[in-house]
């Protein structure tokens, strides 16, 4: 049984309720408000301790915005982000002030997409990795920092002797290890990984995925794994949530989702992934049209203009995200009634 389904009985580590993030759209000299981009529009899901929840979608679907809202790298417009702290209290991250958030930083951390932009080029590894120790744990002594950083570097597969080097001495894959070391030095419980392997070369990508899997076991981490790459998501996640134009359209345990998708968008997305096998070529049935503009989405179900199963109802009513089968949520009026093709394992 996959870890995701059985974890349902537990209390979630993080619960996102009706999260919204609207960006104002302004125009002209007086910066008149002419509309809103609904980057994240009423998204709800939960992450359970020890699991990896994947958040997939195409660019502009709001997956990165969701991830950044959860860590309050950006402030959400509305909604609750309930985090269960190590002490057992449930706090709403969305409403805390910067000072109130600081103690929570120990428990939730982030891994970034671009390993070149996410490390300060003016600081060496010791300073980069030990910064959370200084500002959160208040560790001042250099020996203690050196010791903790050495331990951390070893854990992510870098030699502790590299501690005094600067980021420019490292390749993309190594930099991503440094980013991981910084994120994990406080032993957080939740790690939000925003496209952590997208910028890496194929041969290095596997190394970082392996590292993330190993560290999850060793440190009992919970991941929110944001990616546009379905293959990677399928490889690393227990459960997967699919986003389209700011909304969640489907959420299910990984194998269930890939074997029996319930939302036509999920089906189309999976069909569009090029399979690295020349014998399976006919499978590619491209989705027509393009992702709508989140400032001006279509009526009803946002996917209906591109959906091959679209009915008049779809144009009029937006389907809610409902549990169509146990543990399998989908936002489609005809979830379960359509025979959609997944990927055979």
């Amino acid at each position: 049984m996959p870890a995701g389904t059985m974890a349902q009985d537990e209390k979630p580590l993080l619960e996102v309720r009706s999260l919204k993030k609207y960006f104002p759209l302004r125009k002209g000299f007086f910066r008149r408000l002419i509309g809103q981009i609904r980057a994240v529009d009423d998204v709800s899901f939960a992450i359970y301790e020890g699991e990896t929840l994947g958040l997939v979608g195409e660019s502009g679907c709001g997956k990165t915005t969701t991830a950044r809202c959860i860590l309050r790298a950006i402030d959400p417009t509305a909604g609750q982000i309930l985090f269960r702290t190590a002490a057992g209290d449930v706090v709403d991250v969305a409403t805390l002030s910067e000072d109130e958030l600081r103690p929570l930083r120990r428990e939730m951390q982030m891994i970034f997409q671009d390993p070149y932009a996410s490390l300060n080029p003016r600081m060496n590894l010791l300073d980069i990795v030990s910064e959370p120790l200084i500002v959160i744990e208040g560790i001042k002594s250099r020996e203690e920092r050196v010791q903790r950083v050495a331990q951390m570097l070893e854990m992510v597969g870098l030699r502790p002797e590299y501690m005094l080097r600067y980021p420019h001495a490292f390749s993309g894959g190594q930099r991503q290890r440094i980013v991981i070391a910084r994120a994990l030095v406080l032993h957080p419980r939740l790690v939000v990984a925003d496209e952590p392997v997208s910028a890496l070369d194929v041969s290095v990508r596997a190394q970082v995925l392996n590292l993330m899997l190993r560290l999850q076991q060793e440190l009992s981490l919970t991941y929110l794994f944001v990616s546009h790459d379905l293959s990677v998501v399928k490889h690393i996640c227990n459960r997967v949530a699919v986003m389209y134009v700011g909304k969640l359209v489907e959420l299910a345990p990984t194998e269930e989702l890939f074997a029996r998708p319930l939302h036509p968008y999920t089906e189309a997305l999976m069909a569009a992934v090029p399979i690295p096998d020349p014998r399976i070529r006919s499978a590619m049935l491209p989705l027509e049209g393009e992702v709508p503009n989140p400032a001006n989405p279509p009526s009803g179900c946002y996917f209906h203009p591109r959906c091959r199963y679209s009915q008049p109802l779809c144009r009029e009513q937006a389907p809610p995200l409902q549990e169509a089968q146990p543990g399998h949520l989908a936002a489609c009026h005809f979830a379960g009634q359509l025979s959609l093709r997944g990927v055979s394992p």
Binding site: D201, S203, V204, A206, Q207, R214, S231, F258, P276, D277
Partner: peptide, 20 residues
């Protein structure tokens, strides 16, 4: 070393060691 929709989930990928 490439994860595909067809590799077993949550397994270690046989990665190429080192970097380019």
């Amino acid at each position: 070393s490439i994860p595909s929709l067809r590799t077993p989930p949550r397994s270690f990928l046989p990665a190429i060691e080192g970097s380019i």
